[in-house]
Write a protein that binds this DNA or RNA. Structure first.
Length: 177
DNA sequence: CTGCTTAAACACG
DNA sequence: CGTGTTTAAGCAG
């Protein structure tokens, strides 16, 4: 019946363009999809490790909140100082900025939230449970989520192939390399 | 159109 | 029950 199944989407469904460079097909095998290879210094001598998949997205966004000012930092790994709270720095600043209480939804999207949590992790890998914790620990907004944010988080984890899941049994989420 | 959010169904351990 | 995956639909840019 209807072997002519072109696309489920009516009109123009041009296949999933996917993200602009998100490989994530196989854990191994580098995605050398870039024919130009550009001039990315893969040396990593300086420490700049992040530079892949959503990085562009996160890096840019994070940058906005990492150093709210044009002031540049020399630290290769600026990172915020979460942990402990009091120094939540940017995160709380951005989240609790303005004047509204610390109850508003964070300006970050779930994808970003997850990314930060993992990135902020000690070893760059957290179990999904910890991810919830990180978010919960930083955003009281979720402390009593209406129920659904959890699902949304999981959803993002699965959607984004950048969150490589490692470790069987207890899913430990790690970022793509 | 693209991306984010929510809600929910559904296989799995 | 929690995790993971997948649909689906609505909404903002």
């Amino acid at each position: 019946m209807s072997p002519d199944k072109k696309a489920e989407s009516p009109g123009v469904l041009a296949e999933r363009t996917d993200l602009r460079g998100v490989c994530g097909t196989l854990p191994e095998a580098e995605c050398a999809a870039s024919p130009l290879a550009t001039s990315l210094d893969r040396s990593s001598s300086s420490g700049d490790e992040e530079l892949t998949n959503l990085n562009w997205l996160h890096e840019n966004l994070l940058q906005n909140f990492t150093l709210g000012g044009p002031e540049a930092q020399s630290s290769p790994s600026p990172l915020f100082d979460i942990e402990g709270n009091h120094g939540s720095s940017v995160i709380s600043s951005a989240a609790s900025h303005g004047g509204e209480s610390v109850k508003s939804k964070p300006p970050f999207s779930f994808s970003l939230l997850i990314y930060m949590a993992i990135e902020q992790s000690p070893s760059k890998s957290l179990p999904v449970k910890d991810i919830y914790g990180w978010i919960l620990e930083h955003f009281p907004y979720f402390s009593s989520a209406p129920t659904g944010w959890k699902n949304s988080v999981r959803h993002n984890l699965s959607l984004n192939k950048c969150f490589r899941k490692v470790e069987r049994s207890l899913g430990k989420v790690k970022l793509c390399d």
